[in-house]
Design a binder for these strands. Sequence first.
DNA 1: CTTTTTGCAATATGATTGTATGGTAACCGA
DNA 2: TCGGTTACCATACAATCATATTGCAAAAAG
Lengths: 196, 196
Amino acid sequence: MPKQVDHEQRRRQISSALWRIAARRGLESVSMREVAAEAGMSVGLVQHYFASKEEMLAYTSTHLRERLEQRVRESIAALGSPATPGQRLRAMLVALLPTDPDSRDETLVGMALFIRALNDPALATRYRHGRTQLTTAVAAQLAECGVHGDGEVAADTLLALIDGLASDLLLGHHTPAQALRVLDDHLAKTTRPAIG
Amino acid sequence: MPKQVDHEQRRRQISSALWRIAARRGLESVSMREVAAEAGMSVGLVQHYFASKEEMLAYTSTHLRERLEQRVRESIAALGSPATPGQRLRAMLVALLPTDPDSRDETLVGMALFIRALNDPALATRYRHGRTQLTTAVAAQLAECGVHGDGEVAADTLLALIDGLASDLLLGHHTPAQALRVLDDHLAKTTRPAIG
DNA sequence: CTTTTTGCAATATGATTGTATGGTAACCGA
DNA sequence: TCGGTTACCATACAATCATATTGCAAAAAG
């Protein structure tokens, strides 16, 4: 057989082509042919790595999620070692916002896939688990900040706020600076009394 | 000609068929044939009232927006005449949340159309204007509550929160009761000191 | 050496898409 | 009553879709 190939890398390569198309022209423009062309390969090869379009979209969905988690980790790590819990919380939340072209594309496609998943119970369940994970992670950071009251409600509040700000950023209703102002304003009012 | 027909009513009827399909099986399942079948008419008749699919989607988008504004008005009106500014603000925000099957369907389709609009500059501009209108309206209600600080930031915070809560409701991460708890918690912390 | 197996492409298939066209029947204004 | 307009349907059309099939060349396995 021809030189052995890294399956996972090929899948990522195809998936990247997919969300480049989806980001530029929408999920509805994603077809086997378009993806193959963008990835610079034949339709048959795309089929070789993904049995169906559905499988390709599902893979992209988890791939995007992994990249998101990585961005969060990197954002926290970039703070350096002497960082306060409050700084880590903020870094985490900011990393969830689409503030540069790359994250903008990822968020845009992620939202399109999310909406799509709402009409499919199985997919929706996966997103629901992911969403619960996020709440848990944010609540943990909040606990380290020593906030008073129900940490889970506070975490859900923050994540809902982030989700809305993300939409506003994609729409162009906010600039990144404006979105950060809204976020910081909220953080100041809700966590500052406890952080001191 | 056959008995004169109310064009606007026909358009609404077709548009309703469209978002019934979109809510149940997603925007990607919306086709001329499906819409015609759901509306109980021929494809040709749908074409008679909408020159293109794009026009049909655009109409649905503004139709949904009108219904949203109407829900907000009704929600405020339902308070009765002796209502505090704080109650009016809350009624307005709650009306934006998908808390029953009908509003759930509308929000779901509205979000799908929103994501779609992000890849079309002209449509995005319309949504941006609508979003700005909302901020203005909420800021006005906030002003009546006599809040301190930047009313526009507070309004944008509230609307971003609502948007995120709407997503969480659609996903099933929150029940309506949970979403209201998050909203009320936030309102208490941000407006109560001023309302007294 | 064969003999598989594997990466990859070309093409076939049948369904579905948005839209265009041609028609029929009903009703209005003249 | 008659030309013209309108509501509506059936169907045709070319494009595009996801997927299945076939084939071939390269390299690993025997």
